[in-house]
Each structure stands twice: as C-alpha cells, then as structure tokens.
C-alpha cells in the first residue's frame, strides 16, 4: 500500500465508527529502520519515543547513541540527537545534562558499547549519580560488526570470535553489568526488561516511563536494560530467536526490577548483586 492509500484506509475506518487504538508515534520519523527484521531495537526505539510523546517532552529531549547497531538512531528519533564515539555516550550525556539541566537526556547503548569499550564512562556516570536515563540493549553479541563475542555473550555461546562457544578459561565470564551498577549509590532505578511479547512490551514501556519521570527527581541514574535478540548474529529466525532468548538469556539475565527508588527491589537476593548468581552454559 502506498502512503496515501494507508491514510485513506485509516480515514475510512474512522468514518465507519472505529477509534484508533494504536499507531506509530510522531516522535519517530518516517525513516525506514535499518535494523534486521524482528530486531528488538525497533521495538525499544518505539517505546522510548512513545514515552517522550506521552510525557510531552519532545522539545526538551536530547538523545545520545554511540557506535554499534544503534549508531544511526538519530535518523529515527525526531528529537535533538548526538552520535558519540564508541562507548562515550555517558560522558556526553553527563555534560549535556549538567549544562542543560532542564533537558531530558538519555543514552541508548548496546552491550559492546556500554559494557566493554565504555565500561569506565558507564560506571562513573552512574557513580556520580548523573540525572540521566540510560537505555541498555543487551543481545549478547556485536551485531553491527558481524556477530563477534560481546561482554554479555553467554558461556558456550558461539559467535564469530568464539566459533567453538564462549570458553570461560579463554574469554572470561559474561558481565552482568546491570547488577553491578545497582550496587552503586548513584543509581536510583535499575531494571531489566524485554520486548518480545505484548506483556513484556507493556512492562518495558512502564519501566522506560519511570526512568524518564525520575529525571524530574534529580536523584541519579535511571537504568533500563532490555534483553534483546540478534536474529542475524544468532543465525535464527526472529521468532525462534525470541524463544531462544527466553530459554537461554533470561536465566542468565533475569527479568525484573533490581533497584527501585534508590533501594534494592523486593525479592532480589543480595547474592545476585555480588555476581554469584549461577551462570548457565548454553549450546548454540
């Protein structure tokens, strides 16, 4: 359907007494996303944009995305946007917020960016308690460069640089940086969500909304991890990748709030925060 046909069809439905339940927010541009089919980035982008739309803060929002699959996020969000060097988004966001305290500032980073090359910037921005929102998309792999091992690649998981599976003796352990950040006094809200089902999307959106609302409180970093898929990197169909994610990523990266309103969330075992949560070994 051409654009005009779509608009015509929508108008017809409204004329027939239908009400609009859902349509793409205007805070996303009409640019076609460059992400692979079924990629969680698209859904996560949409949720962030919907939150900006619903809060009415499009004119006060500045986004930052660095190198990785989300490097061209600036084409999709209709807000002022900065593209950072690999790993440095939290440093940019720190200065944007400090020099423009009325702005809502968010970073949008992948696992290689936030948890490998940008570890120092991530930890120090969180530890300083910058009043920013950080969106962290964790799909356990370097997507943009062609599926190499990420800091979050699971033990046993095959990638372009771990062709026989991630081996702890050779490659070390998957990094649960979100748990690590929750132990820092500068983080106010730390949660892990996903976007593969309607129910997960609802929860993820509520988390992102909270993470943006928290900027008004000036109490520190609000950090939302989205455990996501990488169909191309995992070499699976999108639907199979979502299933594999639920079966293998979730046991290692448990979904739910870790820290809420500056306090460790209810039901969170303190042992998990000191990284003794058992890691599973996957075979893929």
């Amino acid at each position: 359907m051409a654009n005009t046909d779509i608009e015509q069809r929508k108008q017809e439905l409204l004329n027939q007494g239908y009400t609009e339940v859902y349509t793409k927010t205007k805070v996303l541009t009409d640019a076609v996303l460059h992400y692979c089919p079924g990629c969680g980035h698209g859904t996560t982008h949409r949720l962030v944009a919907e939150v900006i739309d619903e809060m009415g803060i499009q004119d006060k929002t500045v986004g930052v995305s660095p190198v990785g699959c989300s490097v061209m996020a600036y084409n999709y969000f209709d807000v002022d946007f900065q593209e950072a060097a690999h790993g440095r988004a939290p440093a940019l966001a720190t200065a944007i917020k400090r020099l423009n305290p009325d702005c809502f500032v968010f970073t949008y980073q992948g696992d290689g960016d936030l948890a490998a090359i940008g570890t120092a910037e991530t930890i120090h921005a969180c530890n300083r308690g910058e009043n920013i929102t950080m969106i962290f998309v964790n799909n356990g792999i370097y997507g943009m460069t062609g599926g190499q091992m990420a800091p979050t690649t699971l033990v046993g998981m095959k990638s372009a640089t771990t062709p026989y599976g991630r081996n702890v003796a050779l490659n070390g352990y998957p990094l649960r940086i979100t748990e690590l950040l929750a132990t820092l006094p500068g983080t106010y809200y730390v949660t892990r969500q996903s976007v593969q089902t309607p129910a997960a999307v609802r929860k993820a959106k509520a988390a992102i909304r909270k993470a943006f609302e928290n900027q008004k409180l000036q109490k520190g970093v609000s950090f939302v991890e989205i455990v996501s898929n990488c169909n191309s990197g995992w070499k699976m169909t999108p639907v199979a990748a979502n299933k594999w994610m639920e079966e293998n990523m979730f046991p290692n990266y448990p979904i739910g709030d870790i820290k809420v309103d500056g306090k460790i969330a209810e039901g969170i075992d303190a042992n998990r925060l000191v990284l003794s949560h058992p890691l599973t070994v996957v075979n893929k």
């Binding site: 900065q82 440093a91 944007i96 120092a120 910037e121």
Partner: peptide, 19 residues
Amino acid sequence: LQAESEMASINMVYGGAAT
C-alpha cells in the same frame, strides 16, 4: 567537573559543546 579520564573529559566537551 573532574572527569574519570581524559577520554571522558574530551567527550564531555563533545556533549556539552554540541548543545
């Protein structure tokens, strides 16, 4: 602001100056 490294400080310059 005292940054955690020169890499952070130059990137803070980037973020701030880009506003």
